[in-house]
Simulated assay, not measured.
Amino acid sequence: MSGWRTVLVTKPCRLSMKNQQLVYEPKDEESINVPLEDITVIVLENSQSNMTTALLSQIAEKNIALFSCDSYHMPNGCFTPFHQHSRLSQIAHIQVKMKLPLKKRIWQNIITRKISNQSQLLKQFDINNLKLELLKDKVLSGDSENLEAQAARKYWGLLFKDFRRDQKALDPINIALNYGYAIVRGAVARSLVSYGLLPTFGVFHRSELNAYNLADDMIEPLRPMVDMVVKKLALEDELDVCLNISIKSALINVLNMEMILEEESVSVLHVCDVMAQSFVKSMKLKDTSYLKLPLLT
Score class of each variant (00 low, 15 high):
Tyr155Val: 02
Leu8Ser: 03
Ser289Met: 02
Pro294Gln: 02
Arg165Ala: 06
Glu220Ile: 01
Asp166Thr: 01
Ser68Tyr: 11
Ala152Arg: 00
Gly202Met: 00
Tyr179Asp: 00
Asp287Val: 01
Phe279His: 03
Leu158Ile: 10
Leu285Ala: 10
Ala234Gly: 09
Leu147Arg: 13
Met98Phe: 03
Leu170Ile: 11
Leu261Gly: 06
Phe125Cys: 05
Lys131Ser: 12
Gln118Thr: 02
Asp143Met: 02
Gln95Lys: 02
Arg105Asp: 08
Pro294Trp: 05
Phe204Pro: 01
Gln84Tyr: 13
Gly3Ala: 11
Asp166Lys: 11
Gly3Gln: 08
Gln118Val: 06
Ile115Tyr: 01
Leu192Trp: 01
Pro221Ala: 04
Asn253His: 14
Asn178Asp: 11
Thr10Val: 06
Met283Glu: 09
Met283Arg: 04
Met283Ile: 09
Ile94Glu: 08
Phe125Gly: 04
Val41Arg: 00
Phe160His: 10
Pro75Met: 10
Ile260Arg: 14
Ser57Ala: 13
Gln48Phe: 04
Asp70Cys: 15
Gln95Pro: 05
Ala65His: 10
Lys131Asn: 09
Pro35Glu: 05
Val230Ala: 03
Arg223Phe: 12
Ser278Met: 00
Ala187Cys: 09
Phe163Tyr: 15
Glu45Leu: 05
Lys292Tyr: 00
Leu197Lys: 07
Tyr155His: 08
Asp216Glu: 12
Val229Gly: 06
Val193Ala: 11
Cys272Thr: 15
Ser49Met: 06
Asn174His: 04
Pro12Lys: 03
Met257Ser: 14
Leu22Asp: 05
Leu285Gly: 00
Lys292Val: 04
Val96Glu: 15
Gln120Cys: 07
Asp171His: 06
Cys242Lys: 12
Ile64Ser: 03
Ser71Asp: 11
Lys161Cys: 12
Ser246Phe: 10
Lys292Asp: 03
Ile115Glu: 04
Val96Thr: 15
Tyr212Lys: 10
Ile245Asp: 11
Glu262Pro: 00
